[in-house]
Write a protein that binds this DNA or RNA. Structure first.
Lengths: 116, 116
DNA sequence: TTGACACATTCCCATATGGGTATATGATTG
DNA sequence: CAATCATATACCCATATGGGAATGTGTCAA
C-alpha cells in the first residue's frame, strides 16, 4: 500500500505547506484563483490542484462570479485536527493545568446561566 | 517533485493514522515496541518504521532497557500544528469571541501578577 | 556457545503524489 | 463568431511512501 490520499482527510490535506499557505491567504476573505497564484508565486494549474484537494476535504468552498471562481475558507474541516492535537497541549504549556481549572470554572458558570 | 517526506515535519508525520494511534497510545506513558504491536494489531517492522518517523520529527524519545526499547511521547513536536490550527478555531467555535475576551482578561491579570 | 527474544533494517512493489507543460472548458468582450 | 481572460484537467515523471517478508543486530538465558 502507498501513502494515503491527500484527499483522505484534513490531516493529509494540510500536510502540504502550499495548502496551508492557501488557507492562510483565504483567512483574510474570499479570493479568486489568480490572487492565490500571485501570493504563492506558484503556477496556476498547481494552485487549482491544491484547491481541489482542499475542496475535497471541505476546507474551502467555491462560488462563481463571472469568469472567476471565488474560494472561501471553511475552517470547520480543521476541527478534527484541533481536537486531536489539543490533547497534547500539556506537553508544552506549563500553565495548562492552571488554565484547565479556569476553563472548567467557566463551563460551570455557563451551564448555570443556561446560555444554550 | 513528489510529496514531501513524512519526516519533513510534524504535519507530515502525523498525517498517517497509525502514527497518531501510536502517539495516543504513548500518551499513557512509556511503552516497549511489542506493546504497540499488540495495541495497533500491526506487524512489528511496520511499527518500528512508524516509530522511526516519529523519532525523526522529535515526537517520541527512546530509552534502552535490556533488550527492549521504551518509547516515550514528546508532545512538544506537535506545538507547531497546534499553533497553526488554533488560528482557525473561530470557524467552528461560536463562543470563541466570548472566550477570547476572557483569555485576554486572564492574560492581563497574569502579567499583573508577574508570574513569569 | 547456542538459542530465544526484542527490535531495526533491507528489499520489493503498488500507489499517490506535486510540479511542469499542454490543452480543454466557460464566460466576457469586440 | 473570434479573441481573450480565468480556471480546470490531462499527461508525464521523479520520488516517497506503507505494508509484507526476510534478515541483521544486540541482549539475556541455559
Amino acid at each position: 500500500m502507498a501513502r494515503a490520499a491527500t484527499t483522505a482527510d484534513a490531516f493529509n490535506a494540510v500536510a502540504e505547506p502550499r495548502r496551508r499557505q492557501i488557507l492562510d491567504a483565504l483567512a483574510g476573505g474570499e479570493r479568486p484563483v489568480n490572487d492565490l497564484v500571485r501570493l504563492l508565486d506558484l503556477a496556476q494549474p498547481q494552485v487549482s490542484k491544491h484547491l481541489r484537494v482542499l475542496r475535497e476535504v471541505g476546507a474551502v468552498d467555491v462560488r462563481d462570479k463571472g469568469r472567476q471562481r471565488l474560494y472561501r475558507l471553511n475552517g470547520h474541516a480543521l476541527k478534527p485536527i484541533h481536537d486531536w492535537v489539543k490533547n497534547y497541549e500539556r506537553s508544552w504549556s506549563e500553565r495548562f493545568d492552571q488554565l484547565d481549572v479556569v476553563l472548567e470554572d467557566l463551563k460551570q458558570k455557563e451551564e448555570g446561566n443556561g446560555s444554550e
